[in-house]
Design a protein around this nucleic acid. Structure first.
Length: 502
RNA sequence: GGUCGGGUGGCCGAGUGGCUAGGCAGAGGUCUGCAAAACCUCGUACGACGGUUCGAAUCCGCCUCCGACCUCCA
């Protein structure tokens, strides 16, 4: 597949032809979670999006180094308290215990969503020397200043030296001056409101602390990503991703730090995922407008009428482009669940069927192959998963027509049928990875020979009854099976069965 | 208040200067012992007002509504 890949670059605000720094290789950095709490559903959307980007880049032949960090220090709250420290205080644990607990929880959630682990998952606390070194370099370059044991990035000087603070977010430094509220801690220490801490002095009660040339302290939040991306991906790498809300100040500051330390811009392409809304509004714990992944899976929430499996939730996310806001509602999830079921039913049928080798005019070939090609092109066009999915659904329609004999085998060549199998396998298995739910394998790949044998027996007995026109017995069997969450469907080629989800 | 991004049919959501998105829901039909599923057909659309154009829902302006960011946030 030699399709030209285009990605939407947040700095230029347009789609651009993707050209890797080193042919054949891609370095990708994505801002990972701050492990002070259970992983947020919106966070899951971001990581699912980048997982698909990661998988796609590999599919088209790139060797990808995917770095996604774990933030376990430096991320401060409004009141200046470190998120990790606060978590530790509330749970009466060591900060590292808190980090470990939520890191494990995060990994588990990523597994449930069927995302691949990144190539490297560095922790901020494991890279203190690298961060100190970067602060020293920025100081040496004259773009930072020391105040009372803290080190601040000097945005004024950076601009004076032709730095471009605001390239990503479109913010002007003069405007920041007038807009910034002055209720922030340490605000008075800064020379300019737009300056930001790259190293902070630790107060006596601050438990996460390290020695540094400037005294005991801890790294600024924005610094870790600059230091770790530099260490593992080099001065210039291909893709930097994260949620939309990280653009400012986090990513803007990251660019400034990279330029300030090594005169290198870091990422060539900045990709940002959009927000996940709940009933049209931003999720917020304070006003109750929030739902956790667990609540979705268990149905234990006032916002939804039933439980939804992880793969349905993932499918729901994929039906929307990563750069659009996605509104999560019960109605939308219900619709997604039905669509997902239809897609997977067709896929399941496809897996177990082979072309009989019939000859014919193959009149469907052209249309089908165009759909397949389009699905690939959609992915190359800034990873347009909803559009690619729409092609798959058009193929589902073809498959169902074939199944119902509205389309004959003579209308599809064996080669084209094989193409359909390949594209379904590629998208459902390799790219979207929506085929396996934690509670079981919906494609029927798991060893269930015993169950198959029993079901075949039951279906045979019921069909005997149907031949005798003993409808009462036939319906009794079907109803009883339904009670036990097994649904029977009588088709032209005999009866099929499946375990129902809810 | 500033910056940015949006408002698409009953719902969710793509996309485009003239050519079907797709899913869910709805109407009619086919198949079927019934049911379910599936298939076929159909309808409803691009926030308001101006402008550019042979032609705009798609470009421009203005208005309005919504969201994100500006303060920790994916």
């Amino acid at each position: 597949m030699t399709t030209a890949l285009h990605v939407y670059h947040s700095v230029t605000r347009q789609k651009e032809l993707f050209i890797p720094e080193t042919p054949g290789f891609i370095g990708m950095y994505v801002c990972g979670p701050t492990v002070y709490n259970d992983v947020h559903l919106g966070n899951c959307r971001t990581f699912v999006s980048f997982d698909i980007i990661y998988r796609y880049l590999q599919t088209i032949g790139y060797q990808v180094r995917y770095v996604r960090n774990i933030t376990d220090v430096g991320h401060l709250l409004d009141d200046g308290e470190d998120r990790m420290s606060k978590g530790a205080r509330l749970e009466k644990k060591e900060p590292m215990e808190v980090a470990q607990k939520y890191t494990v929880g995060f990994h588990n959630m990523m597994r449930i969503f069927q995302t691949l682990p990144p190539s490297i998952e560095p922790r901020a606390t494991g890279h203190i020397p690298e961060q100190i070194e970067m602060v020293e370099t920025i100081l040496k370059n004259g773009l930072a200043y020391i105040k009372n044991g803290s080190v601040y990035f000097d945005t004024q000087k950076y601009m004076y030296n032709k730095g471009d603070y605001g390239v990503l977010s479109g913010r002007k430094i003069d405007e920041l001056l007038s807009e910034t509220r002055d209720n922030l801690k340490n605000q008075s220490e800064k020379n300019h409101p737009a300056d930001f801490a790259i190293w902070m002095k630790a107060s006596d009660e601050h438990i996460m602390r390290w020695n540094s040339p400037w005294g005991i302290g801890f790294p600024g939040w924005h610094l870790e990503c600059s230091a770790m991306s530099l260490k593992y991906l080099g001065e210039v790498f291909d893709i930097h991703g994260g949620g939309n809300d990280l653009k400012f100040p986090h990513h803007e500051n990251e660019i400034a730090q990279n330029m300030g330390s090594c005169q290198c811009k870091g990422a060539k392409y900045w990709l940002h995922t959009n927000m996940l809304l709940l009933n049209g509004k931003k999720m917020s714990k304070s006003d109750g407008n929030t739902i956790s992944p667990e609540q979705l899976f268990t149905g234990n929430s006032e916002h939804i009428s039933k439980s939804y499996s992880p793969m349905v939730v993932k499918f729901f996310m994929l039906q929307c482009h990563y750069r659009s806001t996605l509104d999560l509602t019960d109605a939308a999830l219900l619709a997604a669940e039905k669509g997902y079921k239809r897609l997977m039913e067709a896929y399941k049928w496809l897996l177990n069927i082979n072309h009989p080798g019939t000859n014919g005019d193959f009149s469907q070939d052209a249309e089908i192959n165009t759909l397949i090609e389009s699905a690939h092109l959609d992915m190359a066009d800034d990873f347009n998963t909803p559009k690619a999915l729409s092609r798959l659904f058009e193929l589902v329609n073809k498959l169902n027509s074939l199944k119902d004999k509205h389309i004959g085998w003579e209308q599809i060549s064996p080669a084209t049928f094989e193409n359909i199998k390949q594209v379904f396998s590629l998208f459902i298995n390799d790219l979207f990875a929506v085929d396996i739910d934690v509670e079981g394998d919906l494609t029927g790949n798991q060893d269930k020979s015993l169950l198959d044998g029993l079901m075949n027996l039951i279906i045979q007995m019921r069909n005997d009854a149907r031949l005798r026109k003993d409808w009462a017995t036939a319906d009794l069997i079907r109803d009883a099976l339904k009670e036990n969450k097994v649904e029977l469907k009588d088709g032209k080629d005999g009866s099929s069965w499946q375990v129902t989800e809810s």
